[in-house]
Amino acid sequence: MVMVLYDGSFEGWLTAVFEIYEYKLADVQFAQEHACNLSMFHSRHTVQTNAAKARRVWQSLVQRNSIDAANAVYHTFLSEQQGIDAVLLRYMQHAFKQQKPVETDYSHPSVITVIQTDRKVRREKHRMEAFIRFQLTGDGLYYAIAEPDYNVLPLISRHFEQRYADQRWVIYDGRRKYGIYYDLKQVSTVQMQFSQQVQASAIQQAYDENEQLYQQLWQRYFSSVNIKARKNTRLHLQHMPRRYWRYLPEKMPEGR
């Protein structure tokens, strides 16, 4: 058994796939370097992320299948499900072995997993694009907190960059402790480590003086368009699951 250690990034994983073929590694397991616990029965292969190797694997997948298939692999990786890197390796091995595209080969277990997981991640992406609510801080920065089920911040950055191109903003993933920041020129990744208690108090103190008024107006607007006679709780929860309510101003008590 060979334990393949990589840095946890998608580029690092693509590099690992390249080196599995390069060094003819068999019977492999993946582990991220910071969370590795080797047993005495494992040998180790440490991967140094290499952009050129990663690009070759990506381009090969696109050429043999399609850009949609390659994107599905990327989305599946972002799901962060346990053991998904090994599932994706089997998908890649299957794809490289066949003489035709495998993205619709529903007889192969790894293909089915990728199709299903890709669909879930894309659904979460669209929900984040719909449910992100920015709040204005005193220094003119628009700030939003989210806790998506999957690591979709890399997938939503383009949407918000295009939609809010004239303002500085940051979207923080409270579950993964990092964010994406737009400085009016480009989007970059930022790391922020603090507890939820500190997070809540610090952001509240930094709000623009008019922010609470804006939130109250938004809450009243939401209440005014919500016709009680047509209330359908089941349908509402289907489109806006309760787990997203925590950071939605319209779901917070008025006057908060």
Rank of each mutant, 00 (worst) to 15 (best):
Y178H: 03
Q167A: 13
A16Y: 01
V152D: 00
Q205T: 02
V4G: 02
Y106W: 12
A130H: 11
D118Q: 13
R234Q: 14
R44S: 13
S188M: 13
H45D: 05
T46A: 14
Y182L: 04
A54K: 05
R230I: 02
A86I: 06
T189E: 15
Q196C: 06
Q212D: 09
E147G: 12
D166E: 14
A26M: 10
F134P: 03
D118F: 14
N37I: 13
F194D: 14
D208G: 05
E124V: 02
H94E: 09
Y143P: 01
N226T: 01
D149Y: 01
F10R: 07
D27N: 15
S110D: 11
D149G: 03
G83C: 12
R175I: 02
R133D: 01
Y181V: 08
Y23D: 05
Y178M: 00
H42M: 10
V152H: 01
R119V: 07
A86H: 08
A95V: 00
K125F: 08
Y207F: 15
T104G: 05
A69E: 01
W58N: 10
I145L: 13
Y207V: 00
G174V: 05
T189I: 14
T117D: 07
Y172D: 03
R127I: 00
E124K: 03
T233C: 03
S43E: 06
F30A: 09
G255Y: 08
L153D: 04
F77T: 00
M240S: 05
A16L: 01
I203Q: 02
L141T: 03
Y23K: 11
S188N: 11
L213E: 14
Y164A: 11
S66F: 10
Q63G: 03
G138F: 00
D166G: 07
A95M: 01
Y164D: 13
R242L: 13
